[in-house]
Amino acid sequence: MLFVLDESGLDLGDTDISLLEDSFRKLSMLLNLVVTSDFPAYCWSDIWSVKCNSSDELHQLVFNQAGIDPEVTRQLAVEIDRLSYWDDDFDIDPEFEFTCGTHRIEFAPSTGFCMRMIEQGRRGVMVTTQQGTLQGVKDLFSPRQSKHTEVLYISAKTDWVSCIREWLKSSDCPVSQVERYSEDVFDNLVFADGIWSQVRHFEGDNRTIRRQLINNLAGLNDHLLTIRSHHVTNDRIILEMKIRADVVCSPDSPKTHKNNRAMKQREVETAFGKVDCEWHAKLEPHRNRIHFGLNRGKVFIGIFSGHLET
């Protein structure tokens, strides 16, 4: 996978100073996520000359615009300077002009580079501003090549999170890479020390397990705390998690709670003290469980197992 800064998204128009500052701040935050990941990130070597409105090029807005917080513009400059120039690293003469439905994109060489990478089998992602016309997955048409290509545009941290999650689900990367991104893409979960070595306890096809694991962790991360804050009964939490998160989860049964040895297996030591992981999410009906606990307003992911004693 690779990320590419979108010139067309920098066409911000004659916008208000406060909105311009907000756009620069959010783009800086997104670029920071991109460049600190393990994936290559690129921009066009002439990025600073891109027209951002009727009178200003990017370098003029970043370095000479009165009224914008200088720390915001400084940080944007730092993040852009951390990108590599694709036209230095690749011998490619990309398209500059495209259409997306009825919308015409008159000048976007980095989009052309990204499309070429996608055609070569790479997973290319365009990084744009929240004011950019192109957001999400877009079907772009190149008049020069007379062909269509689907391109993903991201403009916020949530987009980046979704992008990384999809890559983790579909790639053959080692478990260490899942662990490396786990705190970033599952920021409402706390993982027990050493838990990623327990992935080997899951049974079945590795690709299927990886997809199920990421989907269930995403569902727990994105929905469980909100659902629990609105619903106090276990039955309602179970129902809402199934409907809203597509996660099949439940607390351990009264029978299990009476089994001291079984409950001991569910105890996990954390930086917050001992946590009883007495809830579990089912990757499959009869095997492969994520055992977790709810404590101090946090979701603790404590154990990955084929099936613990009940």
Rank of each mutant, 00 (worst) to 15 (best):
D56F: 01
L12S: 00
R25P: 02
L213A: 12
S18N: 12
V178L: 15
A41T: 06
Q145Y: 10
M29Y: 07
L31T: 06
E284A: 11
V175K: 01
I243L: 13
S23F: 02
S18Y: 12
V78Y: 14
G302N: 06
V247I: 08
T99H: 09
F300N: 00
N216G: 02
C173S: 14
D139Q: 15
H148Y: 15
S49E: 14
G306P: 00
I238F: 05
H291Q: 02
V275S: 04
L220Y: 07
L239V: 11
E267T: 07
A192N: 10
R289K: 10
I154F: 09
M29Q: 09
E179C: 04
A218D: 13
I214K: 02
Y153F: 15
V190M: 03
F304W: 06
I209S: 05
H230R: 14
R82P: 03
P285R: 06
L27N: 02
W279G: 01
E203L: 10
H291P: 02
R228D: 10
R122D: 12
D88T: 09
T15C: 13
D193V: 12
N206I: 13
Q145S: 09
S84Y: 07
F24A: 04
D69Q: 10
G13Y: 09
H280K: 04
G13W: 06
G132R: 04
T310Q: 10
N215D: 15
G306L: 02
D235Y: 06
T233N: 06
E278W: 04
G136F: 09
E150V: 01
K147A: 11
D69G: 07
G9V: 13
D184C: 08
K26D: 07
K242C: 09
E166C: 08
E21R: 08
D93E: 14
